[in-house]
């Protein structure tokens, strides 16, 4: 049985809107889930996003790649909810200016750890580190795209990403045998 697909005009406005949103829903769901931490709040957040997106449906249907626009709005709605719930900590980013020393552990850590334990450790990160890690390593956004999404300079994001990775490795390496070495590499700096 053949199935028909129509272009926007043949669709009702609501159907055209849903057709434009549909390809992005899985990624937006994962983001919402990671922002909020549980499915119920994630769905509430996505419903807020859908309401906001409906108001801007013309913009969405005209964008070649509305994914970053939707992700940016989702993040801002998440921050609004976070603030309303009193969860915003003004001191969260005080470590941005601190340098992270290079790891000298010569053994990999995470391949010996169960995935759920790694994810639990991700959820223990400070929000500003967790966010960039989820967007970059989890969703594949580049730092430039993330910068546009959450209005944080790429240099700061780079530091937060490195700090997040280092924190997870350090936390999960505790209790395991470690081997360190001073870096002997030369040639090129």
């Amino acid at each position: 049985m053949s199935k028909l697909a129509h272009l926007w005009k043949r669709l009702s406005p609501a159907s055209a809107f849903e057709a434009a949103m549909s390809p992005h829903m899985e990624r937006l769901w994962r983001l919402a889930l990671r922002f909020q931490g549980n499915p119920s709040d994630a769905e509430d957040l996505l419903q807020e996003l859908m309401a906001r997106a409906w108001q801007h449906r013309q913009t969405i249907q005209e964008l070649d790649a509305p994914g970053p626009w939707l992700a940016r709005v989702l993040y801002r709605l998440h921050v609004d909810r976070w603030r309303r719930q009193g969860g915003l900590d003004a001191s969260v980013a005080l470590d941005d200016a601190m340098q992270v020393e290079a790891s000298l552990d010569t053994q990999t850590v995470l391949d010996r750890i169960a995935v759920n334990e790694v994810l639990e450790e991700v959820n223990r990160l400070p929000e500003h580190q967790r966010l960039v890690l989820l967007l970059h390593d989890g969703e594949g956004y580049g730092l430039k795209a993330i910068s546009g999404m959450i209005d944080v300079p790429t240099g700061t994001l780079k530091s937060r990403l490195h700090r997040a990775r280092a924190t997870i490795r350090h936390a999960l390496a505790d209790g395991t045998e470690t081997h360190t070495t001073a870096c002997q590499v030369s040639g090129g700096g």
Partner: peptide, 22 residues
Amino acid sequence: NCPACRAYAADVQTLRRALADD
């Protein structure tokens, strides 16, 4: 030439897979 940085890079890949396979 640097086992510590190789371990770091390998763990970054493992972390990405863990997040992607969630």
